[in-house]
Every structure is written in C-alpha cells, then in structure tokens.
C-alpha cells in the first residue's frame, strides 16, 4: 500500500533536491543557449541574404526533423569518435539548446517579419546600424509575439531535461530510476518527482503570465490565444 513516510522521506532527500537543482540548471543553460542562438539564427533567417538564410534553413530542418533524444545521444557519443569526450552536462545542455534554437529561430524570424517595414526605415534614416536597428527597434517590438512561445519553450525544456538521464546526467528522472534500483516502490518515488516537476512547471507558468503582461507595454493588443500554441522543442 501507499507509504506516506517513504514519500516524505524521499521528497526531502538531499539527493532529490540536488537532482531538482540539476534539472533546473540544465534547463536554464539550455534555454540560454536556445534563446541566444535562436535570436541569431532568426535574425539571419529574416535577412535578405540568400546563402546565410539557406544555412539557417538547413539547420532548422536537421534539428526539427530528428528526435531530440537522437541528438542528445549523438552529441555525447559521436564526438568521441574523434577523440573529443564532451562532459555530460555540456553535451546535454548543448543538445537541448541547439534543438530549441531551431524552433525559436522560426519564432524570432516571424516575429521580426511581423514588425512593420516603416519602423526599420525610420531607424535607418536616423543613422542606426543594422545591429542597432535590430537591438533597439525590431527585437523589442517582436518581443511581444516572441515572449509567449519562448516561455512555453522553457516549460518544455524543464521536462525534456529528463532525456539527459540517457547520458547519465543525474536529473530528477534518473534520480528516480536510481532510487528504484534499491527501493522498488514506483508509486511513491514517481509521486515524489511528479511533485517536483509540477512545482517547477506550475511556478514557471505563473512567472510566464507576469512576463507576458509586462511585455504588453504601450497598450498594444494582446496576442490572440485561441488556438493551441504550436509545439515547441519537445522531444
């Protein structure tokens, strides 16, 4: 039967908390890589230069067309063929981030393209460089449409870190599996990590709605949310 004392003990176990921290740090580093690279790729994708744009297209195809798990395994296993062994955390966060960048680059690209051309022209006429136009005029305006999907991507990221268990990164799910090897009480143990995951994703959901409200400055209309969001960077 259900064992409350085991549940509480496992919930507050030092290793469980450490595993939760590992999950969060992998998600944050992965998200930072994803957002940064996604903005760079998206800006190139929205530009008029033909060849760089093709490179971005190819990148997106590769990372969206194959499973994230395959990418994680490839990042960890394939470099070893050339004598490079990436540390687990590096390989994992890099794979998560580069995968997410492929999704976010399209979000960024369409966000940038949704900004009226006159905005860019007005900035150019004032003598701003392309980088300044991007940084001060188009990106801030695209932010309103970019923030919700980016927030969803982080929510997905919190969950996809679970795949890093495959390359023996000790996040929550791997922690549960390890505990399961010694104490075969799957209900209690999975309940413990479920609590952690739900706490993280729910808390982030609250942060996200505040962020979205903050970025709705200038009285601009809120983004319509009738359709379910397209999937982002999951699996």
């Amino acid at each position: 039967m259900w064992d409350w004392s085991l549940f509480w003990k496992q919930l507050l176990e030092r290793d469980a908390i450490r595993a939760a921290e590992a999950t969060i740090s992998a998600a944050i580093v992965g998200q930072l890589i994803g957002v940064t690279l996604g903005i760079l790729l998206g800006a190139v994708g929205a530009s008029r230069r033909r060849w760089p744009r093709r490179v971005v297209d190819a990148y997106v195809r590769v990372f969206r067309g194959t499973p994230l798990l395959l990418q994680i395994l490839a990042f960890y296993i394939v470099p070893s063929e050339y004598g490079i062994q990436l540390p687990v955390f590096v390989a994992g966060a890099l794979a998560l981030g580069m995968n997410e960048a492929a999704y976010l680059s399209e979000v960024v690209r369409s966000g940038l393209m949704s900004v009226d051309r006159g905005q860019r022209e007005a900035a150019q006429v004032l003598g701003m460089s392309s980088a300044q136009v991007l940084l001060w005029v188009t990106l801030p305006q695209a932010a309103r449409v970019m923030i919700p999907p980016m927030g969803n991507a982080f929510n997905a990221m919190l969950k996809t870190t679970s795949l890093l268990g495959f390359i023996s990164y000790e996040e929550l799910l791997r922690h549960a599996n390890l505990v399961l090897d010694t104490v075969y009480r799957p209900f209690e143990i999975f309940a413990v990590i479920t609590v952690y995951y739900l706490a993280m994703t729910t808390a982030w959901g609250l942060v996200q709605s505040r962020l979205e409200r903050y970025f709705r400055v200038g009285g601009s209309a809120p983004v319509a949310r009738r359709r379910p969001m397209p999937r982002l960077a999951e699996v």
Partner: peptide
Amino acid sequence: NWLFQGTPLLMQLIFFWAVLPI
C-alpha cells in the same frame, strides 16, 4: 491536462513500465 502536460513524457513512460508488474 495539468498532470500530463506538467511532467515529462519520458517519466510517464517509465512509470507505466515500472508499475505494470505491480
């Protein structure tokens, strides 16, 4: 929806696999 979308798919998968024998 909250439960299934708030936790990783992989966890759900391993959970089913683990509890079936029980």
